[in-house]
Amino acid sequence: MSRLRTGWILPASIVVALLLGLLPLPDVLQPLRPYWLALVLAYWVIEAPEHAGLGFAVIVGLLADLMFGSLLGEQALRLVIMTFILQRFRARLRFFPLSQQSLAIGGLLLNDRIVQLAVHVALGEPTLPWNYWWAPLLGMLLWPPVFVLMDALRLQRRG
């Protein structure tokens, strides 16, 4: 029964994250675009692992690849790696204060950029400019408000 009542929040949050990723930004702000999809998926992996796992990360990543026009499987690989690490450390990470969770999420987002760089280098694709490395820092700063908002939505529907 609880899955029926809270079932719409997970797909709706993924759709919103995908739309935020497609939102046009000025050229100056483009390098600062946080990886919204990773932030939302990280929340669900930490707080509701029975609904969001490795298979879910693959599906969401492939959908993102299709929507963003990136190399098919690149975002799926990046999200699966992030999800695997989160699942491995979920028991500890879940009880960290938000400030420490932010640091961990920042590390995961930085790792995501490194994986993205490795994929692009391995395939001979152009790499991102240096200023795109600021996005993990912004994602780390956005983690507390994203977490609090998602938690409020999830817990409001439960009660």
Rank of each mutant, 00 (worst) to 15 (best):
F68M: 14
L66P: 07
G7C: 02
A135K: 00
V80K: 01
A17V: 05
G55E: 11
P97M: 11
G73K: 08
I14W: 08
R90Q: 15
A135C: 01
M140E: 00
R88K: 15
L54C: 07
L128Q: 13
L98A: 13
A52F: 06
V119I: 15
M140H: 01
W133H: 05
L20C: 06
I81V: 15
L86S: 04
G69V: 13
F96P: 00
E47I: 02
L117F: 13
A57V: 09
V80R: 03
V115R: 13
P49M: 09
H51D: 08
L108A: 02
W133C: 05
D27S: 13
E125C: 08
L117W: 13
L72F: 14
M67G: 09
R88M: 15
Q87D: 12
L117H: 10
V115I: 14
A17P: 02
A104G: 06
A118G: 11
V40H: 00
D112S: 12
L66F: 15
P145L: 07
P24G: 05
I9S: 07
F56Y: 11
L71A: 12
F68R: 13
E125V: 14
I114M: 13
G53R: 10
G55D: 07
V80H: 04
P126M: 10
E74N: 08
V45T: 10
L29F: 08
F84V: 10
L54G: 07
L25W: 05
G21P: 04
P136S: 00
G53K: 04
V115K: 11
G7V: 03
E74A: 15
W133R: 04
A118E: 10
W36G: 03
D27H: 11
L93F: 13
V45E: 02
W134H: 06
L63T: 12
P129T: 07
P31E: 01
S13A: 15
L22I: 10
L117S: 09
L137E: 00
A42H: 00
E47C: 03
L77K: 07
D27V: 10
R33N: 01
G106Q: 00
G55P: 05
G55W: 08
V60Y: 02
P11D: 10
N131K: 08
L54H: 05
P49F: 07
A91S: 11
N111V: 15
L71G: 06
A12I: 14
L103Y: 02
W8N: 05
P34Y: 01
W130T: 14
P11G: 05
I46M: 06
